[in-house]
Write a protein that binds this DNA or RNA. Structure first.
Length: 292
DNA sequence: TTTGGCTCCTGGGGGC
DNA sequence: TGCCCCCAGGAGCCAA
């Protein structure tokens, strides 16, 4: 399940691979993947003749800046570019891209296909079909159209994600600290794996009411979130099941998790057995002895 | 306002 | 071998 490190890995791959990729043809294999505009023809026509100019990331959202190719009236061979809004992608659970420079048949989970003039293909595949795409024309605000994007909390690597901010947002929260970490309006980009790993690293029980976390623990937690995410980005994401980079490869961070999917195995620190329990409908992995 | 549960979706795995 | 059921989880929606 792509979280911030995996999405960042994908972003880097797309930026590296898609230099001068001008979309000439768009094929929608599953209509529900296109969340906006409502009319799929608008989506197709909006993307056609667009240069995928620059890839950004916000939380778990990928945001491609687009430039439209425009032929010069006086000289047909001369092409200029004008701003053409953004293509926003959320991979959700199982979404990933592949880049194909030879024509190959798409698998049954292929949702969107983008082709350039040379039949190079950027293919979006998504087994569980939770992932979505939006094309937001120039002049409109993606934050207003995509609710989840507009309400995102600060990036974990930003200055605004600091101890004072965390203290302020959790001071009156009765729900669990695990649930807080999963809340994208509080911190952008953390999902189930990194919530569990960060809490283990900080030595905090995922079941603790958020408002009971003291300042020292908040410091440890902030540090743990940043360290765990940085370490995973360095490794190219996690191994677990569904995530693939542009080459179709898994990450390798999964081999190094301390608690996630290690139920019944020995804690790397105290040798106590790792436990699993549901919080907010999510499997939560933790060490009863190391996390208080 | 806050919180937790349900829903969407599909492949894998376990039980019978 | 085949069928059925449960599980995985991000985020929007809804009810308490």
């Amino acid at each position: 399940m792509p979280e911030l490190p995996e999405v960042e890995t994908v972003r880097r791959g797309l930026e590296q691979k898609l230099k001068n990729f001008i979309i000439k043809r768009v094929e929608i294999c599953r209509e529900s993947t296109v969340a906006y505009p409502i009319d799929k023809i608008d989506f197709i026509e909006g993307l056609q003749n667009s240069l995928l100019y620059k890839w950004n990331r916000r939380g778990k959202y990928l945001i491609a800046e687009l430039k439209k190719t425009v032929s010069n009236n006086n000289d047909a061979n001369e092409i200029s570019f004008v701003e053409n809004g953004v293509l926003v992608v959320h991979l959700r659970m199982t979404g990933y891209f592949t880049f194909n420079n030879t024509l190959t048949n798409p698998c049954k989970h292929t949702r969107i296909r983008l082709f350039d003039n040379n039949n190079n293909e950027l293919r979006y595949i998504d087994v569980r079909s939770f992932g979505q795409m939006w094309w937001v024309r120039d002049g409109l605000s993606p934050n207003n159209i995509i609710k989840g994007l507009g309400t995102l909390g600060p990036e974990p690597f930003s200055e605004s994600f600091n101890v004072n901010y965390l203290k302020k947002v959790i001071s009156n929260k009765t729900r669990s600290i695990k649930s807080i970490l999963l809340d994208q309006t509080i911190i952008a980009g953390i999902g189930n794996i990194y919530a569990d790993e960060s809490l283990y690293s900080a030595g905090i029980s995922p079941f603790r009411e958020a408002r009971t976390i003291n300042k020292n623990e908040i410091k440890r937690l902030r540090r743990a979130v940043v360290d765990v995410l940085k370490k995973s980005i360095g490794a190219g994401g996690t191994t677990f099941s569904d995530f693939r980079d542009l080459e179709g490869e898994n990450g390798n961070f999964g081999l190094q998790t301390n608690v996630y999917r290690r139920t019944g195995k020995k804690c790397r620190q105290c040798k106590n057995l790792i436990e699993r329990q549901k919080i907010s409908g999510r499997s939560t992995h933790w060490c009863r002895k190391c996390q208080k």
